[in-house]
Amino acid sequence: MKTEQHWLVAQFRQGFNAENRSRATRDLRDGFGHIELWAVLGLHDIRQRYRRSKIGPFWITLSMGIFIGALGLVYGKLFGRALDAYLTYLAAGFLVWSFMSTTILDGARVFLRSGGMIKQLTAPLSVYVLRMVWENLIIFFHNIWIFVGLAIWFGIGFSWVTLLAVPGLLLLLVNGLWVGLLLGLLSARFRDIPLMLQSSMQLIFFLTPIIWEPGMLPGRPLLLSGNPFYHFLELVRAPLLGQLPSLENLLVALAVTLIGWAVSFVFFVVYRWRIPYWV
């Protein structure tokens, strides 16, 4: 076991050299430069999925609407909440959650599913991650109509606070990029990771206050504070519901962003060149 560790540390020491760092940085920068490629491909993927269907991508909206409607009626009753407040809470929470969870699950497959392309194109690898985040953003903007519809129906006012959801969403996108880079890279090598994530995300869904509200769980602060998903969720959900996210939410989310990017960058520098061999 000891020699194993040694070997891994050596790989990182050797791999994190100036040459690899500049190549990784160039890959990330050039990835943004290929905006036409990933923007078209992301849009194409979505159109592809709904080609020749009558309402097309609005199936995403519809299925989400049905889900929220059904869940809202049952759990609203169970928890004894007023229907209008509970449905908007659920819609806003589920909207953000589905962005986070699909970004993580798609992120794990980001290089695996593009194996054919990676081996035939000279495009930077970050292109595939950008395409994935972009795709999920498009889906987010289909899902948001459920919330907007409910908010208008129940007369929830829009104010300046609502606009704070925008920087919250931007922070989610920034995090989506490192998640895709890191999980995509690790999953390309260890194929159990995407499968493992699939079952963990289901569990995390129930542990995160999406169906239930933080106030329903008194005396368990760790379950909330220790859950990064909760903090990111609040950064977008709270403004949508007309409240300010807490300072704690913001600080934890920023810390996760920084640490996540730092770790991903190190991994990307050291192992980027191996991805085409792995996929």
């Binding site: 990676i118 081996k119 035939q120 194109l121 000279t122 085409p276 061999y277």
Partner: peptide, 9 residues
């Protein structure tokens, strides 16, 4: 060919 393309480093 893939090495020449810069795909396989």
């Amino acid at each position: 060919l893939r090495v020449l393309a810069g795909i396989y480093e």
